[in-house]
Computed example of a mutant assay.
Amino acid sequence: MATVNPYLIFNGNCEEAFLFYKSVFGGEFPYMGRFGEMPSDDPNAPKPSEEEANRIMHVSLPISSETVLMGSDSTSQSGDVVIGTNISISINTESTGEADKLFDGLSAGGTVIMPMTKTFWGAYFGMFTDKFGIGWMINFDEKPQ
């Protein structure tokens, strides 16, 4: 069965927000990665600016046995987020088949931002906005941590 987690997007203060959330919920970050740490398959791809390189690409904070609070910062590519629309629903599936089924079904009539693909962090992942304007992220961890 898939698990559902909130995914929060920030305009450059993700680390500050998650340090605050950690002070309230406790626990540890299993992962906190920055845009500057992302590998690139394209040697001609532009390098992020120093400011963007230090922004959070992904962070996760378990807040209960069932829920992980996740987040990242926006970039010049994604644009500034609008407060109130800076949350997505992240679904972690048990298989690529389940991921494809949910992605195809929920994205019908919506806008695909990133099609389902294998990622450098070891997941099969995709993003879209559904036809009602809700942001979704579908993820299958091929190499669970």
Rank of each mutant, 00 (worst) to 15 (best):
D80G: 14
P115R: 09
T111C: 07
G84H: 06
N54P: 01
I56E: 01
S74P: 10
G105T: 10
K101S: 11
S60G: 14
F120P: 11
M116G: 03
D73G: 07
T85V: 02
L102V: 01
V68R: 02
E98K: 09
T75V: 13
H58F: 13
S95P: 00
S88L: 02
S74D: 05
N92K: 14
G79S: 04
W121E: 03
S74H: 10
T117C: 15
T117R: 15
L69C: 02
D104K: 14
D73F: 15
E98N: 01
L61K: 03
P62F: 00
T117F: 09
G84A: 09
W121V: 05
F120V: 04
I89L: 12
I56M: 09
I89P: 00
M127I: 09
V59H: 02
S74Q: 06
I56W: 08
T93N: 04
A123E: 14
G71K: 00
G79K: 01
P115W: 08
I113W: 06
V68D: 03
G126I: 03
I87R: 00
F120N: 07
L69P: 00
I63M: 08
G79M: 05
T75H: 03
S60N: 12
V112P: 04
G126V: 05
T119A: 07
S76R: 13
I83N: 08
E98C: 03
I83Y: 15
F128N: 02
V81E: 05
H58L: 08
N86I: 01
I87C: 11
T96Q: 11
S72A: 11
G71E: 08
I113G: 10
S88M: 11
S76D: 15
S107N: 03
A108H: 06
M114D: 01
L61F: 05
A123C: 11
N86Q: 04
G126L: 02
T75P: 04
T67Y: 06
N54R: 15
S74T: 08
F128H: 04
T96I: 15
G79L: 03
P62L: 07
S76G: 15
L106A: 06
G71M: 06
V112G: 12
V81T: 07
I83Q: 11
I63H: 00
S64T: 12
T93M: 04
F103A: 04
S78T: 15
S78P: 11
T117D: 10
T85G: 12
M114E: 07
T119D: 02
M114G: 04
H58C: 00
I91K: 10
S64G: 03
K118C: 10
V81I: 15
S72H: 03
G109E: 07
I91V: 14
D104L: 09
M57D: 09
G109Q: 11
Y124M: 06
M57P: 04
I63R: 00
E52P: 05
W121D: 10
K101V: 07
D100M: 08
V112A: 10
V68I: 15
M57T: 04
V68N: 03
A123G: 08
P115H: 03
D104F: 06
S60I: 01
P115C: 03
S74L: 08
N86G: 01
T117W: 04
E94C: 13
L106T: 04
T111K: 09
E94M: 13
S60P: 02
H58M: 02
W121Q: 06
